[in-house]
Amino acid sequence: MDDRDARHRTGRPRPARPAQDPVEAPAGISGVQLDFLRELMNVGSGNAVSALARMLRRPVAMEMPHLYPWPSAGPPFLLEPAAVPMTCATMRMVGDVQGALLFVVPEADRGPLAVLLADAPQGPTGRTGRAGATAAADDTPIRDLADITAGVFLTAIHRFCGVVARHTTPDIDSARGGMVLEKAFAATGRRDPPGLLMEASFTVSEGPVRLHLLMVPRPEGVDRLADAIRAARALCAG
């Protein structure tokens, strides 16, 4: 076995990643803005994955974040015809950027996740640890994971570009495929489609367990992010 094989075996789960986003840029968003928004997701989800790894006490890998011109395109795991049921923690975003955040756990991953959480004696937050069978039927651990992941994600984004956004308490529900996106749409509080969906996916090496974080900003939230881009570019130009 060469070094690379050993590295993968000992803690670097590496899901297949496309070389670039599989979909076209959302309408009205320039290449520079896309570049910035990808980096924003990279920073936010990179910090979130570190928090997940600490909470679960196991290596967690993340894929390159994807941006989709929703509703004309979206994450394949939600849109494929045989999309499986998901446990979905829906949070509204309030502040400079309004919209929705969703923490999504495919039902097939919920049991293994409960086992991982139960394995942490005090649970991820010190208040949710319990036996696996009980935890599998209990929403509290997923609510806690969603709450902390979203908080770390938004804090990192604030430190990255100055945008202030907070999330509401996660609302746990089950949904199948595209209905997850409908929940996100409803949480943005708009009748017209938001136009941009940003996805970060995580894989806990043990299990493995797949987790997804979706950010759906309202159009004016994208404008606010664009302001942050301009400010950041001014910084780069000195």
Binding site: N42, S45, G46, N47, S50, A53, R54, V60, M62, A156
Partner: peptide
């Protein structure tokens, strides 16, 4: 340079 900041990634 990375947003992935857990100790395991640094060690690697």
């Amino acid at each position: 340079v990375s947003a992935l900041d857990h100790e395991e990634k640094r060690r690697e």
